[in-house]
Computed example of a mutant assay.
Amino acid sequence: MGVICRQCMARDSALCSAMTDDEIGELFSIAHRVKVDGGSYLLHEEDSSKYVYNLSSGVCTLERLASDGSRQIMAFVYPGDFIGITSGPYYSVSVKALAPVTACRWHVKDMAGLYHDHPLLEQRVHEIASRVLAATMDQLFVLGRKNAVEKIAYFLLYIDERQRKFDGHSDSFILPMTRIDIADYLGVTVETVSRAFSRLKKKRLIDLSQAWVVTLKDRKALREMVEK
C-alpha cells in the first residue's frame, strides 16, 4: 500500500477499510488518480457510465437540471462516498466539485474483475452507495413535511454528522457549500435560507460567523425541531 493510500482522508470510511493492505495495493494498481478544481465537474449527467469513483478529499454535489434550467441538488458527497454506480449506460446525475477534490477512478470492467476475485468488495461498494441513497430519501421526507427553519436544522445536523468523521468532535464546522447550493438542495429560495439561519441564530441554537463557520450551540433542540 502506497503513501497516497495511507494519507487518504477516506482510508477508514471508504471501501478500502474492509480490505487488507495487499488487496488495497491491487485495487490501487488499476486506479487512476483524478483531481478536479472547484466549480468543475467530475462527471456529467447523460455521459457514458464508463467509470466509478471513490472520493478521496473535498466535497461534491450530486445534481440534475430540470427542463426549465433550474438545478436540484440531490445530495452532497464526502470523502469515502462512491460515485457513478448506475444500472444504465449513462449517468443519471452530474457531480460538481465545491472546492478542489481528488478521487480514485476505475473503469467498470476493471471493477467487475475485482468483484469476481473479491466478492466482499462488491458488497462494500454497494453499502457505500446506499449511504448516499439513504441521505437522498431523508431529504425527500424533509422537503415534503418540514418548514424552512426545520429544513435548515435538518441540513446542519446532516452536514455536522458527515464532517465530524473527518474534523473530530468540534461543535463548529465550515460549510463548504454556498447559500445557493443549500437552497437548491432544500428546494427553497436563497432569501429563505438566509432568514432561516437568522432565526436559528436568534433562538441561540447556532452561531454563524462571516467566514461561513457554523457552531451548533444546542444539538438536542435542533434534533427535537427536526423530529417533531
Rank of each mutant, 00 (worst) to 15 (best):
E63S: 06
V149D: 01
L62V: 14
A211F: 06
R124H: 05
D184H: 03
R145N: 10
R6S: 13
V188Q: 15
D218G: 06
A103P: 08
R223M: 02
A99F: 13
E227D: 02
R124L: 00
L133R: 07
V226W: 12
D12R: 13
K217Q: 09
S92N: 09
G113K: 01
V214F: 01
N147F: 09
P119A: 00
R71P: 12
V226Y: 09
H116A: 07
S172Y: 02
Y91E: 02
V188C: 08
H169T: 04
V93N: 12
S48V: 00
I24T: 03
G113M: 04
F166N: 11
D207V: 10
C8T: 09
A134M: 15
A18M: 13
L42W: 02
L62G: 15
Y90I: 08
V125R: 10
R162Q: 05
A221I: 03
K228R: 05
C60E: 13
A135Y: 12
L55M: 01
I128F: 07
K202W: 11
L216A: 07
S92D: 06
S209R: 03
I4R: 14
K35V: 04
L98A: 01
A99D: 03
M177Y: 05
E122K: 07
S48Y: 00
T189F: 09
G2Y: 11
A75R: 06
L222P: 11
G168E: 02
G113S: 06
I174R: 10
S40Y: 10
Q7K: 05
V36W: 00
R33D: 15
R164E: 12
R64C: 06
M19A: 01
I24A: 07
A134C: 10
L133G: 10
A211Q: 14
F173I: 05
T136Y: 07
R204Q: 10
H32E: 12
V59W: 11
D184P: 00
T215I: 05
R71T: 11
L114T: 04
V59S: 13
A10Y: 14
D138F: 12
A196Q: 02
T86L: 01
F141E: 01
R204Y: 10
I30H: 08
T86P: 04
F197V: 05
T102F: 03
M225N: 13
I30A: 04
D181A: 02
D160F: 09
F166L: 13
S56H: 12
S92P: 04
I83K: 00
A129S: 11
V125Q: 05
A135Q: 09
S29H: 10
L140D: 09
Y185P: 12
L216I: 14
L114C: 01
L55I: 11
A183S: 03
D22V: 09
A183F: 05
P119T: 07
I128V: 07
I4N: 14
L156E: 04
R105W: 04
L186E: 03
L62F: 13
F155E: 00
N147P: 06
I4M: 10
G187I: 04
I182N: 01
I24R: 12
V95A: 15
D117Y: 03
